[in-house]
Write a protein that binds this DNA or RNA. Structure first.
Lengths: 121, 121
DNA sequence: CCGACAGTCAAGTGCACGCTTCATCAAGCG
DNA sequence: CGCTTGATGAAGCGTGCACTTGACTGTCGG
């Protein structure tokens, strides 16, 4: 079990690298936010942006490569939809850090409370 | 209220850009994870890594610039501590996207359930 | 078949990043 | 005072990214 934890660590690291890097661009965050409301085609996703269609297609490619988005086929269009598992990957990491931090603060406050009650540790 | 939402939008975007970009590097994620367990000096933070001390110092600079970490002074050392607000900024964005997605899926399933019950919408 | 439309592939450019090395500063210690 | 230690500043190098333009694929409507 420890071995598998160690083995998946680097894989998760690579996925986290890719997901956080993908989300570090506001165009891509906008695309993700739009897709969280439902599927959309590349043209629909590109409409709000002043950049070329190719640029948006490349952004979608980044999101697809890190697992945040998948593309299907329907007629001439390539409808895009959100893959929430990848979002969960990032969320889990952040929540773990928050959890560890909060636990430590709790222990610290409990310790200080004991000191204030006059007891010697 | 709507105005402030609009005004803070780009500021939040810039902060999200910086926070997600900072977390897109496993060295920096390792530093954040370490700091979630408590304060540490630059040398302590650099110990696990094969790179130069300056490189780690630069990574800490990135984390400091986006608000994830703050540095104090104690004797010759510069103890670093985590600033969890910035983590919350990223968490909030991800949770919002997940919320919107989940809401939509719920509505979709409810809609399909109504159809399967034979009622006409 | 032909033209129009949705989308991708490929090459090029400018810029930011990660890391290194050399130099520097500030604080303690002999 | 000199010397070591903790840490930053600055310049340089290689690499990858965001975006552009130009050419191309594939699918529909006439």
């Amino acid at each position: 079990m420890h071995l598998t934890v160690g083995m998946t660590a680097t894989l998760d690291d690579e996925r986290l690298d890719a997901v956080f890097a993908a989300l570090a661009d506001r165009t891509r965050r906008g695309i993700v936010a739009r897709l969280s409301e439902g599927e959309a085609t590349v043209n629909e996703l590109a409409a709000p942006y002043a950049m070329s269609l190719q640029a948006v297609s490349q952004h979608i490619g980044v999101l697809e490569r890190c697992g945040l988005v998948s593309r299907g086929r329907h007629r001439q269009t390539r409808p895009c939809r959100l893959e929430p598992q990848a979002l969960e990957t990032a969320l889990s990491w952040l929540e773990e850090s928050r959890r560890v931090w909060a636990d430590r603060v709790d222990r610290l406050e409990a310790h200080l409370a004991r000191l204030q009650n006059g007891r010697q540790p």
